[in-house]
Amino acid sequence: MDKPDFSTAKWRKSTGSGDGGCVEIAYVGGTIGVRDTKDNGTGPILMFNEREWTAFLSGARGGEFNLDTLAD
């Protein structure tokens, strides 16, 4: 499988993002890319397929990744 080309992707970040703590998300051909905003598009991109992303979002909505849960 070829690596998706994120060079022209529309990157989005949460309206809840603040200075120095933001990530951006883009969708290209069935792959979700996640990158650190402060890298100005030059850093690495983590890639997930739709099934992995859906599982992550479900866990996030359910509180599985809240800071207090992760600290345990």
Rank of each mutant, 00 (worst) to 15 (best):
R51E: 15
E64V: 02
D19K: 14
R35Y: 11
G62F: 00
G43E: 12
T31H: 00
D68L: 03
K13Y: 12
M47G: 04
A26S: 06
G29Q: 08
T54D: 15
A60I: 01
K10M: 09
K10W: 05
K13E: 13
G18F: 08
D19L: 14
G18M: 03
F56Q: 00
T42A: 15
D2P: 15
T31V: 14
G59K: 12
E24A: 14
S14H: 00
I25C: 12
V28N: 04
R35T: 02
N49M: 09
V28T: 03
D72N: 11
A60R: 12
G33C: 06
T37G: 02
A55Q: 14
E50H: 10
R12S: 13
E52T: 00
F65Q: 03
K13R: 14
T69F: 04
D39W: 06
N49L: 03
G33T: 05
G41Q: 11
P44S: 15
N40V: 07
N40L: 14
P4S: 04
I32W: 10
L57M: 13
D72R: 10
P44H: 14
T42Y: 03
G43K: 07
E52G: 01
G29K: 09
I32V: 15
F48I: 03
K38W: 11
W11H: 07
D68M: 06
K13Q: 13
L67K: 02
D19A: 13
I32D: 03
D39G: 02
W53I: 02
D72K: 13
N49Y: 05
R51I: 09
A26K: 00
E52Q: 13
A26Q: 02
D5Y: 01
N49E: 06
G18P: 07
R35F: 12
P4R: 03
D5P: 13
F48K: 00
D36I: 08
G18E: 02
I45Y: 07
K3G: 08
W53D: 00
G59W: 10
G20R: 15
S58H: 15
K3F: 04
E64C: 05
F6G: 09
G59M: 07
K3M: 09
R61E: 07
K13H: 13
C22W: 08
Y27D: 13
G20C: 10
F65P: 00
E50D: 14
G30I: 08
S17L: 08
K13G: 10
T42G: 01
F48V: 01
K10E: 12
P44R: 13
S7E: 01
L46P: 06
F6R: 06
R51F: 04
D36S: 09
G16N: 11
T69E: 03
I25D: 04
T54C: 09
S58I: 05
L46N: 01
G43N: 10
L57K: 14
P4K: 07
I32P: 02
G16C: 01
I45R: 05
S17D: 14
T31F: 03
T15K: 10
G62M: 03
G62L: 07
A9Y: 06
D39N: 11
M47C: 14
S17R: 00
V34T: 05
L70Q: 00
A26I: 06
K38N: 12
E64A: 14
I25Y: 02
S7G: 04
T42P: 08
T8Q: 14
K3T: 15
W11G: 08
W53T: 02
L46M: 11
R51P: 03
